[in-house]
Deep mutational scan, measured.
Amino acid sequence: TTIHVGDLTLKYDNPKKAYEIAKKLAKKYNLTVTIKNGKITVT
């Protein structure tokens, strides 16, 4: 599972963990989490 945050690309083997991290990042920086085709993007 890949999380895209701006220019950063973070890879995680565990999709659930990746989603949790994405949610935390989104909350911290007041951003939105988008999931599309298995890719998690924080914008």
Rank of each mutant, 00 (worst) to 15 (best):
Thr2Ile: 12
Thr2Trp: 06
Thr2Leu: 10
Thr2Arg: 02
Ile3Thr: 03
His4Ile: 14
His4Met: 11
His4Pro: 02
His4Lys: 12
His4Trp: 10
His4Val: 14
Val5Pro: 03
Val5Thr: 02
Val5Gln: 02
Val5Lys: 04
Val5Gly: 03
Gly6Gln: 05
Gly6Arg: 02
Gly6Asn: 05
Gly6Cys: 11
Asp7Trp: 12
Asp7Ile: 13
Leu8Ile: 12
Thr9Asn: 07
Leu10Tyr: 07
Leu10Asn: 03
Lys11Ala: 10
Lys11Trp: 15
Lys11Ile: 15
Tyr12Glu: 03
Tyr12Cys: 10
Tyr12Phe: 15
Tyr12Ala: 06
Asp13Trp: 11
Asn14Glu: 05
Asn14Trp: 10
Lys16Ser: 10
Lys17His: 11
Lys17Gly: 03
Lys17Val: 13
Ala18Tyr: 03
Tyr19Ala: 07
Tyr19Trp: 15
Tyr19Gly: 02
Glu20Pro: 00
Glu20Ser: 10
Glu20Leu: 11
Ile21Asn: 04
Ile21Trp: 11
Ile21Val: 13
Ala22Val: 08
Ala22Gln: 00
Ala22Leu: 13
Lys23Ala: 10
Lys23Gly: 04
Lys24Glu: 11
Lys24Asn: 07
Lys24Phe: 15
Leu25Cys: 04
Leu25Ser: 00
Ala26Pro: 00
Lys27Thr: 09
Lys27Asn: 08
Lys27Glu: 14
Lys28Tyr: 10
Lys28Pro: 00
Asn30Ala: 07
Asn30Thr: 03
Leu31Asn: 01
Leu31Thr: 04
Leu31Phe: 07
Leu31Gln: 02
Leu31Ser: 03
Thr32His: 11
Val33Gln: 00
Val33Ile: 14
Thr34Val: 14
Ile35Lys: 03
Ile35Tyr: 06
Lys36Ala: 14
Lys36Gly: 12
Lys36Thr: 14
Lys36Tyr: 09
Asn37Leu: 08
Gly38Tyr: 04
Gly38Ser: 05
Gly38Pro: 00
Gly38Glu: 04
Gly38Val: 02
Lys39Ser: 14
Lys39Tyr: 14
Lys39Ala: 14
Ile40Lys: 00
Ile40Arg: 00
Ile40Cys: 06
Ile40Trp: 04
Thr41Ile: 15
Val42His: 01
Val42Asn: 01
Val42Gln: 01
Val42Asp: 00
